[in-house]
Simulated scan of single mutants.
Amino acid sequence: MPNQGNPKHFFPPLTTVCKNRFPFPVACPSFVYPAGYEENVCRLAPFVDEIQLLFFESEPRSLPTPALIQELSDLAASHDIAYHIHLPSDIYPGHPDPDERRRAVVAIHTIMERCQVLSPSTFTLHLERNPAGTENLPVERWRQYLLESLERMLPQKTSPGKISVETLDYPLEWAAPVIEAMDLSVCMDMGHLLVHGEDLQAFYENWKDRITVIHLHGVDGSEDHLALDRLSDERMRTVLGLLQALKKVVVIENYSYPRLNASLACLAEGWSRTANKGM
């Protein structure tokens, strides 16, 4: 995302400090203010424990440069902030076209290798189902291609468990054989699960031993990435109970100041209210 100027001209600082406030790290995306990585990290670091560095695009010109990584490393030290990485979402490591798989492998390998110096807590990966025109590829063949791509994309000395497979718009059971074979972790995106009618408690029971990071955002019907105050009281109670049980990195996945500001306040208020009642 391009730098669009100093965000101080757009929004004031966040109003709720969540850094060192919960029994789990709270994170937010690296693009909340209409600016680049440096400005966002500097402005967000006082309020959260960790920042989700978004590298959504796989084109070579969009990959993080060594200079950017060094800058982010310096910011981590000076602002007491940790990172995790969101890998590109425009790739298909299970694509039937070997050139598409090769492109995915190169992009992921490059980002992971360059970001090792940041000591990220996890690398979140989309195992996308294939795009239009390849719908007839059998699930078994898709899994085979995924396995081949994953085995090739890991840099040396990188544990497969550092990759957390995000829940998307299909049942994660479809990718379960790949996750288990490669010993990958799971990113439980609660918003995605709610939008697609999944039961959060049931998902937790099934995957709790592999969940290393949680994505949290409000939903309304089919719309997601809203502020947390859009969740019903019942859903919020379920969410807070699972956060208490998991104690993993919780990413408030809002990509604008108004939504993130409302979400952090909602999380703090809900946690305090629940704690006072005895969780």
Rank of each mutant, 00 (worst) to 15 (best):
Q52D: 12
L68K: 11
S62P: 05
E38C: 02
V26Q: 01
P64Y: 04
E59Q: 09
A76K: 15
V48Y: 08
L54R: 07
Y33S: 03
F24P: 01
P7N: 13
G5S: 07
S78W: 14
V32W: 09
A76F: 14
I81F: 09
A67H: 14
L63P: 11
A67N: 11
E57N: 07
C42D: 06
I51V: 01
R21G: 00
K8H: 14
N6E: 06
F11C: 01
F31W: 14
F47C: 01
Q70F: 02
V41L: 00
F31T: 08
K19V: 02
P13L: 02
P64A: 05
E38G: 03
L75P: 07
F24Y: 14
H79I: 01
Y33Q: 06
F47E: 01
Q52T: 11
T16H: 09
E38V: 11
I69G: 00
G5P: 08
P23W: 07
P23T: 05
P66G: 13
E38M: 05
T16E: 11
R21Q: 09
L53K: 06
H79C: 08
F10P: 00
L14M: 12
P66Q: 11
T15N: 15
E39M: 08
S62W: 14
S73P: 00
A27L: 12
L14H: 07
H9Y: 11
I69R: 05
S58L: 10
P34R: 08
C28V: 13
C18S: 06
T65W: 10
E50A: 09
F55M: 02
L75F: 09
L72Q: 10
S30W: 05
H79F: 13
S30F: 04
Y37E: 03
E71Q: 15
F22T: 04
H79L: 05
F24G: 02
L44Q: 12
N6Q: 04
Q52I: 02
N20E: 06
L44N: 09
V17D: 11
P34N: 07
P25F: 02
F11L: 07
F10K: 05
H9E: 05
Y33V: 07
R61W: 12
Q52V: 06
S78Q: 14
P13F: 07
P46L: 03
P60D: 06
A27W: 07
E71R: 15
I51Y: 04
S62D: 15
T15L: 13
S30C: 02
V17M: 06
V41K: 01
V32D: 01
R61I: 10
